[in-house]
Write a protein that binds this DNA or RNA. Structure first.
Lengths: 120, 120
DNA sequence: ATAATACATTCCCATATAGGAATACGTCAA
DNA sequence: TTGACGTATTCCTATATGGGAATGTATTAT
């Protein structure tokens, strides 16, 4: 089974950085596609394709205005993400003190070099 | 360009539902791989592969205990996700009142049927 | 040593991109 | 009507899966 479709849910949809930028941009007020193209320096077809994914996952709303399409972020659809991540809030508060001790001693960079096995 | 690697960042890593379940399971206390296999009803190789992605993105920490590997969620790595979603919190609070009016009237289901063009 | 246990990795494959280029569609202006 | 404008879609392609099956590796037990 391949990776789930980007349209399967908000989690998959926002995994793409450009789509997050678009959502940021459209949060304050509705905007036509052309504004997104100009502001984010993306090709128009690319923006339209991202918007399609965002539409299908309910992350944006659209409205026609003459020949323009006005998009706007639907914050409500981001809520599930917020709520899932919130459940971990208490953990990072707890871990901070413990982790810092080791971090200051080891001064490691990056998450993991992935050396589980010693063998080559 | 294909989709970004699941290991490119936390956003991509948690897009997979099973990985979120694993993170939930490992949040309270460290657990050996076998426990995850049993609890989530997944194949062992599958779990190991998901854990690899989670390790590479820093979402879990590992520690060897004899022949077992003890994994635990590193909540700190989930923080960027929490913070990004938090920036939308004020928007859904605002939108709630406005949206509800329409929702109660239209009683629409699903996000979008995607009928932008009328032509066939 | 040898076997058993607990994990990790590799191989194979169907599927879903994301970007680039080209093109189709819907609406308004002249 | 015809043309221009603003968007959306299609076609093409390289790439990254995620699951299943088989196998490799590290560690402890006998």
């Amino acid at each position: 089974m391949p990776r789930a479709a980007t349209t399967s849910d908000a989690f998959n949809a926002v995994a793409e950085p450009r789509r997050r930028e678009i959502l940021n941009f459209l949060a304050l007020q509705e905007r036509p596609v052309g504004d997104i193209v100009d502001s984010l320096n993306l090709e128009q077809p690319s923006v339209s394709k991202h918007l399609r994914v965002l539409r299908q996952t309910g992350l944006v709303n659209v409205r026609r205005d003459g020949r323009r399409m006005l998009y706007r972020t639907n914050a409500e659809a981001i809520r599930p993400l917020y709520e899932w991540t919130s459940t971990f809030e208490r953990f990072w508060r707890h871990q901070l003190s413990r982790i810092k001790k080791r971090a200051e001693a080891k001064e490691d960079d990056g998450p993991e070099s992935d050396p589980i096995y010693k063998g080559e």
